[in-house]
Nucleic acid binder design. Structure first.
Length: 488
RNA sequence: GGCGGGGUAGCCAAGUGGUAAGGCAGGGGACUGCAAAUCCCUUAUACGCGGGUUCGAUUCCCGCCCCCGCCUCCA
């Protein structure tokens, strides 16, 4: 099956053909570790996790690299403010990152390199650019000569003249051209620094990714990803450096996810309108955010709201109960005369799912085909319950439908891996402690009592128990084969 | 200003040159002791506005309006 991917570089959906058949090399820009991750970071992580999983599903051997920027101005500023070495800040937020990633079932990358452990590679990279005439040293700084790279601007679709006209480019007396950007920054007093041929300093932001990509994946990768806001200048600069040096395509497909907004405004630190991932999973199962993110095409903007989380939770529960309700059918007596089965619907849903996913990872449409199957499952279930029996074949088809949905959503969307956060934060612990401890045996007993009351038509007692349980957050559903309950 | 992406029902959100997937919400019905869950029917004379091409456009072209992002660090 062919896969189409929208390539920022060409502005078109293109047939995906990896450099080496059967293998996909992906790099995504990870986070700068100076603060907690928010939903915007989460979206990017979830999107590329899904892309990676889908590629693997298609049979590709995927090598995935995601970096940490663990030295930069923001980290240094924060460290200075808190009077600690910058490594303390970086280490703390790398730890936080892993906690978030684990909670959202973001698979660890195959390599998760840190800038500070790749300094020699970065220096080597810069030196080669100088040797080739694309970079120059001035007073301990090294700059990239943007105008020397004739194709500069091809990714973000802008010309160097426009950029000059924009006049936002900060003039530096050291740069030969205001468009040039720093590959290496001479360290100021008190800043972290490493020895280099140009004196003590530290790498500029755009260079690290190139050096780490070359080291871990090679000079041409298949997919380079990140948030849309990284297109310029970061990815443009990366591309310029890499291609200037190698004269080879740096990335075959540039993939950018849309940004998360709040009330239409970009979620960002500076606006203060951000919601941390911790806050999400202290309130909801991590799966809910995953499903919300995948309910929107990855290139569209996603306006976050708690109302949407609520809506998504309901949709999620619908998927979950369709899968779980196989247990109701299992308990029904066999009825060989029961007509119908789900095999055609399963085939249609699977095909719909994969066609949608293969069209630039159209997860919302893929999800729609799952929901269509869910409806067919519910129709079959209703009928079986009404008729008081089901045929072996129909039951088996429901079982398979249930398994396929579960498998698809787990393997590709990363749902259902676990329904609870796997890392408990203080906030979650506190929340749990404040909750009334619910004893499952006790609930079963109450339900038994209620069912006895129902049998003897003492509905006031039965309803009283149901209401009281609801107050405790337990919802009851009577089914022909017994009473189901769940926590809300 | 330049570049990029959008404007689809009450709210989200896919999609198509031949008359609109899916989710949530609302109304009616079935089921239920009542509920819950689920199903059925129903909710866009129609896809920002105005032109054009076409037998036919929401989908293609042109113009306009509005929103967002990038152009400075940002997933």
């Amino acid at each position: 099956m062919s896969l189409k991917i929208y390539n920022t570089l060409t502005g078109k959906k293109e047939e995906f053909v990896p450099l080496k058949p059967g293998e996909v090399k992906i790099y995504t820009c990870g986070v700068t570790v100076y603060d907690y991750n928010h939903v915007g970071h989460g979206r990017s992580l979830i999107v590329f996790d899904m892309i990676r999983r889908y590629l693997r599903y298609l049979g590709y051997n995927v090598k995935f690299v995601r970096n940490f920027t663990d030295v930069d101005d923001k980290i240094i500023n924060r460290a200075n403010r808190e009077c600690v070495p910058f490594t303390v800040i970086a280490d703390k937020y790398i730890k936080e990152y892993f906690e978030d990633a684990e909670n959202f079932r973001i698979e660890p990358a195959d390599v998760e390199p840190r800038v500070t452990t790749h300094i020699p590679d970065i220096i080597d990279f810069i030196q080669k650019l100088i040797d080739k005439g694309y970079a120059y040293e001035v007073d301990g700084d090294v700059y990239f000569s943007v105008r020397k790279f004739k194709e500069y601007g091809k990714l973000s679709k802008r010309s160097v003249d426009e950029l000059i006209a924009g006049a936002r480019v900060e003039a530096s007396d050291k740069k030969r051209d205001p468009l040039d950007f720093a590959l290496w920054k001479r360290s100021k007093a008190g800043e972290p620094s490493w020895d280099s041929p140009w004196g003590k300093g530290r790498p500029g932001w755009h260079t690290e990714c190139c050096a780490m990509i070359f080291k871990h994946l090679g000079e041409t990768i298949d997919i380079h990803g990140g948030g849309l806001d990284l297109t310029f200048p970061h990815h443009e600069n990366e591309l310029a450096q890499a291609e200037a040096l190698t004269d080879k395509p740096f990335a075959r497909y540039w993939v950018h996810n849309g940004l998360v907004t709040v009330n239409g405004q970009k979620m960002s630190k500076s606006l203060g309108n951000y919601i941390t991932l911790k806050e999400i999973y202290s309130k909801y199962e991590p799966d809910i955010l995953r499903l919300l993110v995948l309910s929107v095409h990855y290139r569209s903007p996603l306006d976050f709201s708690w109302e949407k989380m609520e809506d998504t939770k309901k949709a999620y529960d619908k998927l979950k109960s369709a899968i779980d309700d196989v247990n109701i059918l299992e308990k029904l007596p066999e009825n060989p005369n029961f007509e119908g089965h789900l095999y055609d619907d399963i085939a249609k849903a699977e095909q719909g799912f994969y066609e949608a996913m293969s069209d630039d990872f159209n997860s919302p449409e893929a999800l729609a085909s799952i929901f269509k199957l869910v409806r067919e499952m519910n129709i079959l279930k209703n009928r079986a319950v009404k008729e008081g029996g089901i045929s072996k074949k129909a039951l088996q088809s429901y079982r398979e439908a249930s398994e396929i949905i579960y498998k698809i959503l787990r393997d590709i969307f990363g749902l259902f891996d676990s329904l609870q956060p796997c890392v408990e934060t203080e906030e979650i612990k506190a929340k749990k402690e404040s909750e009334v401890k619910i004893d499952e045996n006790l609930i079963e007993t109450l339900i038994e009592v209620r069912n006895k009351a129902r049998k003897s038509k003492k509905y006031d007692i039965a309803d009283y128990i149901r209401d009281k349980l609801k107050d405790l957050g337990i919802v009851i559903e009577d089914t022909p084969v017994g009473t189901k309950w769940k926590k809300i």
